[in-house]
Design a protein around this nucleic acid. Structure first.
Lengths: 337, 337
DNA sequence: GTCTAGCACTCTGTGTTCCCGAGTGCCAAG
DNA sequence: CTTGGCACTCGGGAACACAGAGTGCTAGAC
């Protein structure tokens, strides 16, 4: 159905359209790429490609533009991820290496990715569920108030102020802290609920109300942060591009954590570090945009996702290369800390 | 020079232009507002106002548009801050009351303000400098690594991982923690540097290298966070409005902490809670936008600033009312926690 | 002196028309 | 199967006219 030359034509159309942002015609195409055939032949191929739904023309007698289906074929079969240049790699490395804490890592990553791709970058905070407890801290604030601080192995810190049902002395707090740490230290967050389930029973009766209060807040913290924070950067890059779906919709989606989460998609369990590309109408919301995303995290433990969002008309090979490289470097940083 | 009627005309022009976004002419003006004079008279007044530089016309024979100077006069003398409706107040209160920690307070505030004003809202995190130390925590991670956690009275938590110059046992860490807390608990952050200056000398010689390392990180944390984090929300509201300075510039400024900081401006020391309005060219960058900002914080202790950013053509009375109200409520919330 | 009415003038924005050129589809010949 | 030729289509820009809104100015009314 689609011989090699037709595929070459499709590839040429995608590349030209991405770089010029104008419908590409048969003549210009035959000239710019050395296809060694005449414009007329190219026209025949184009007619076939249009018949199959890979390209379309905005109006009768204008050049052709790739459809979502055309981009899909291009990404799947006609292009290769383009690796970054050495200079870019070094720049990434040094930029990320300067991060002082998890917040900083995420902020730097999202900015870096935005600058590298000239698109909007989106990064999800490493999720708690697969991390492990590094330390639980109870800080007495007033006689009936303590602050719970939960530190994970990814450097994440969660804190909550807890109102206690009774006055508790500092020494008891210290004791509870020791008990909690003995129980939870090094355990996966997902296992915390079952680990603490019988904790009140193992303690003297007078401690139980206090412990119950603390545990309920602890569990609540875990649940609430289950769907994670997402940050973005590079919104200014939207100003140039024109989206079929209004700019407003895109900006709204970016500020809506839930929508953004859906757009980033879930990591497929078998190949978590694979690049996911969603093109145009393949997206749940925001039909007019494409998303290139991947999972990242330390070692074989995939923790979260990051990616970029841009117009369907984007340079997929370059974008995919940047996303993949950044994901690898940030995973490396997280593993080292 | 400017009698009452001329001022009334100016007010009418501003109000009409804000609501219609079109140059306003003498006839429409005389009809819509009951000025009880003929269009011809209004024209004379307009000519005078234009002479003085309060209004201008985009082209010969189009209606008049307020200049920055015109808006300034309007804000200073011709308008009053418009209080929010009861329903709005209640909505603010309940929405902010649901916040669980400082991060949450700030996030909710910025979203609330964006929604309320239909502009871009900007909120600065409460600065550390005027806060006080509530607790310092040292958490052993590995034998040569500890995590420093600094908790302030505003609920803010800063953490840093510290590489120690030598292996330090947990009991020594605990002791150092006690010393640090004894020294710093309850003290203003600004006074921390002098308080810890002679700390190494007061300790046994063998502790000094470790303490010096910890203190240097602690001081660094204070300095780095001195110019504070700023968040924004409501970028989608920019999509409708057209800025003289391109949309791109605005979006870039929003992602640039430093610029944003300059735009929010400093709290004047004498009246920290006063509303600041910067109109168009009065702004250091972003000449085409206006900013309504104010300080907020618990009690008489002004901690940070918040405000909104929008086109010069904005509804100042309503915006000022919203900013003031939100600042008050969030101050209240912070004071209570 | 101040306001009003009338009038001529000056723009912008819009709609119309026209035409060029890029691009196509189709056909017949190589 | 490829190629050159040819008629056709349509979008976009230039030129043009025109209606409408708004102005400034002047002369008259209060």
């Amino acid at each position: 159905m689609l011989d090699d030359r037709k595929l070459a034509v499709l590839r040429a159309i995608v590349e030209d359209y991405v770089s010029t942002n104008e419908p590409v015609g048969s003549k210009a195409l035959a000239e710019r790429h050395n296809l060694k055939v005449s414009p007329a032949t190219v026209r025949n191929d184009m007619a076939a490609l249009e018949e199959e739904g890979y390209i379309t023309q905005p109006h009768t007698s204008a050049g052709r533009v790739p459809t979502d289906k055309g981009y899909r074929l291009f990404v799947d079969r006609l292009s290769q991820v383009k690796p970054l240049s050495g200079a870019e790699r070094r720049a990434i490395e040094t930029f990320l290496a300067g991060a002082v804490d998890l917040d900083d890592v995420v902020t730097r990553t999202v900015r870096l990715l935005a600058q590298l791709t000239r698109q909007v970058a989106v990064v999800q905070y490493p999720t708690l569920t697969r991390s492990t407890v590094r330390h639980v801290e109870l800080v007495p604030l007033h006689e009936r108030r303590v602050m719970l601080v939960l530190i994970t192995n990814t450097g994440r810190v969660e804190q909550r102020v807890i109102e206690l049902p009774e006055v508790v002395e500092d020494t008891r707090i210290a004791h509870l802290r020791a008990v909690l740490n003995a129980c939870l230290d090094g355990c996966g967050l997902a296992t915390v609920p079952e680990l603490v389930a019988d904790l009140p029973e193992r303690l003297p009766a007078e401690d139980r109300p206090v412990v119950a209060t603390i545990l309920s807040v602890l569990l609540e913290t875990l649940v609430e942060r289950h769907d994670e924070k997402i940050v973005f950067a590079g919104a200014a890059n939207l100003a140039g591009a024109d989206f079929s779906t209004g700019l407003r919709d895109v900006l709204e989606a970016l500020e809506e954590q839930v929508v953004l989460m859906r757009l980033l998609g879930e990591t497929s369990t078998d190949t978590p570090s694979a690049l996911t590309v969603r093109i145009g109408s393949e997206n749940p919301y925001l039909r007019g945009t494409s998303i290139v995303a991947t999972g990242y995290g330390s070692g074989d433990n995939q923790l979260a996702r990051l990616g970029v969002l841009g117009p369907t008309r984007m340079d997929y090979p370059v974008t995919m290369g940047a996303v993949r490289a950044v994901a690898r470097y940030v995973s490396q940083i997280l593993a080292a800390s």
